[in-house]
Write a protein that binds this DNA or RNA. Structure first.
Lengths: 269, 269
DNA sequence: TAGTGGTCTAGACCACCTC
DNA sequence: AGGTGGTCTAGACCACTAC
C-alpha cells in the first residue's frame, strides 16, 4: 500500500484509462495545460484576460498545488501566458514593431539627414534610453571580421532603445578606432544622419550591408536589460557595413525582444 | 517554530546573509543555476558534457529534490542544457545552417534548374522528408494577401525538411488554384527549378520577394514535428513572391528550428 | 540492476497585490 | 485581510538508460 492510497479515487483515475480510451497516458499537467490552451485559442480568454489560478485548477482538476503550477508553467514557457506576482496569470498579447531591413538602410534615409531608426517607428515612440561610447580592445570575433589586428582598439557604441517605456532593443556597434578618431562618431550624439553619414564624410561611405539573424532564449543579463518575460526569445541581428572594395567599417550587434519585432526584407529576384 | 525548524542550519542560511553580504536574497535554485551556468561559460563543461544530476545537486547544495530540479530547469529553459530521460542533463551545442535569404532566390538559382534549397546546404544533407499537396479554401490571412476572394481555392504544398536525420524546417506554400491548375505545381515533384520555374512558365515569373521574420516559442504541434527540445524557439518566415505589376503569386510560411539556422541577408545601400 | 530524470502529493512560509 | 503566485521540503512511484 505504502503511499499508494492517500486517495484511491485519484490513483485509479490513472490506472483505469488504459483500458478505456488508452489515450490518457499524457501527464496530468499537460492535459490541464491543453484545456487551457484550447480555451485561449477558442477565444474564451482574450489577450490580457486572467486565467484560472492555481487554486482554481487544484479544485477543478483535483490535483496538488505543484501540478497546477506545472500546467501554468507550460503556458508561460510557450509565451502564451504571463504571471504577475500576487495578481494572477494572464493571457499575453503580441503587437510588434515592423523593422524594414533593406529600405531603412537605403541611402536616402541617412543621406537625407534622418536617423535610420526613424524608419522603424511609424509614428510610435521609439527612443534611445541609454548611450555609452568607449574605446576598447577588439574582441576576437570583431577583429576577425573588421580585418584589424587582434586586440587593436575599436570604438564601441552601446545603446538601448525604448518603445512606450518598454526596452525593446540593445545595439552595440564596433568601428575601427583609427578611422573614426576625432569625428562625431565618438560622441554620444553623432549628428544628422547618424554614424553612416559621418562615415561617408570620412571617406568610408557604406555601400553594402550584411545582416545575420539568429534566435535563442535570452541570457540572464539580456532578460534583465530588456525586461523580458518568461517564454520570450530574443532575436540577434549582426550587421556588417561595407565601404568600397568590400572594406568592413562597422559591425552592429543587436538584441531584440522577439515579442516586439517583425523583421521585413524586400528584394528583387 | 512551526515548520520553521526541520533543519535550523538551513533556515539560518537564509536569514543570516542579509546581515553579511546582503546579496544572498536570490532564490536557492537560481543561485545553483548560476554556479552551473558560470561553470559552463568558464569551459568546465563543454558541449555534450554531462552536468551534475539532481542527486549531485541535492548533496552538494543541501537542498530538496524539487529545488535541484528547478535549477536544472532554468538552464534547460535558457536553452543551454538539455535533459535525456534516464541518462542525465547535458550541455547543448549550436551548429546552425546558413540560409542566404537573397542570393538563394536570385534567378540564377532556380533559373538554372537547381532547387533553391541546394544553396542552403553547403554539402550538408538537407532533404525533403514529407510532402503533401492539397487544394483547400484559403484561410483569411492568405486570401487577403494573395488578393483572391475569401474562401476561394488555393493549392497548398506542405513539406518537411530533414538535416542529418533531424527535422529542421516546415514549409507551407499557398498558390491561387486557378493559375496553377494542371501544372507540375500540383504534383509532389515540381520538376527542375521547382515551383518558381513552373510559375515562370505559366507567365507568372516571380520578380520580387518579401520575407517577414518573427520568433517565438513553438506550439505543441510545431515542437513535435520539429522534435524541438525545451528552451529552443522557432523562427517564422513568411515569404510572399510577386510577379510583374506586383501581383502576389505565392505565400510560403516556414517554421525553422532556431537552433539549426542562421539567416543571412546581403544587400546594397 | 542501479541510477537517472519525469511526475505527483501534501503540506509550509513568504512577498506581493487587490480590496 | 485575504488571495495570488514564488519558493521549498520530504517523501513517493514510474519509465527509461546504461552497464
Amino acid at each position: 500500500m505504502a503511499q499508494v492510497c492517500p486517495k484511491l479515487s485519484r490513483e485509479e483515475e490513472r490506472r483505469v484509462p488504459m483500458a478505456s480510451t488508452n489515450g490518457d497516458r499524457r501527464p496530468k499537467y499537460q492535459r490541464i495545460a491543453d484545456t487551457l490552451r484550447e480555451a485561449i485559442q477558442a477565444g474564451e480568454y482574450g489577450p490580457g484576460d486572467r486565467l484560472p489560478g492555481e487554486n482554481d485548477l487544484m479544485a477543478t482538476h483535483d490535483v496538488a498545488r505543484m501540478t497546477a503550477r506545472q500546467a501554468l508553467g507550460v503556458l508561460q514557457a510557450e509565451g502564451i501566458a504571463e504571471s504577475r506576482k500576487g495578481a494572477g496569470v494572464f493571457v499575453r498579447a503580441f503587437r510588434p514593431l515592423r523593422r524594414r531591413g533593406i529600405q531603412r538602410l537605403a541611402q536616402e534615409q541617412w543621406g537625407a539627414g534622418r536617423s535610420i531608426w526613424a524608419a522603424d517607428t511609424e509614428k510610435r515612440d521609439l527612443v534611445v534610453d541609454q548611450v555609452e561610447v568607449t574605446e576598447e580592445p577588439a574582441p576576437e570575433r570583431i577583429s576577425v571580421v573588421l580585418d584589424v589586428e587582434a586586440e587593436s582598439k575599436v570604438c564601441v557604441r552601446r545603446r538601448r532603445f525604448v518603445l512606450d517605456g518598454k526596452p525593446v532593443l540593445l545595439a552595440t556597434s564596433y568601428l575601427p578606432a583609427p578611422i573614426v578618431a576625432g569625428s562625431a562618431i565618438t560622441e554620444e550624439n553623432t549628428g544628422p544622419g547618424g554614424v553612416y553619414a559621418r562615415l561617408a564624410e570620412l571617406g568610408y561611405k557604406p555601400v553594402h550591408f550584411r545582416e545575420e539573424i539568429r534566435s535563442r532564449m535570452p541570457s540572464k543579463d539580456e532578460a534583465a536589460q530588456l525586461n523580458i518575460s518568461a517564454g520570450t526569445p530574443v532575436i540577434l541581428i549582426c550587421r556588417t557595413a561595407f565601404a568600397d572594395e568590400g572594406r568592413p567599417v562597422e559591425i552592429n550587434e543587436m538584441t531584440l525582444d522577439a515579442a516586439s519585432y517583425v523583421l521585413e526584407y524586400d528584394f528583387d529576384a
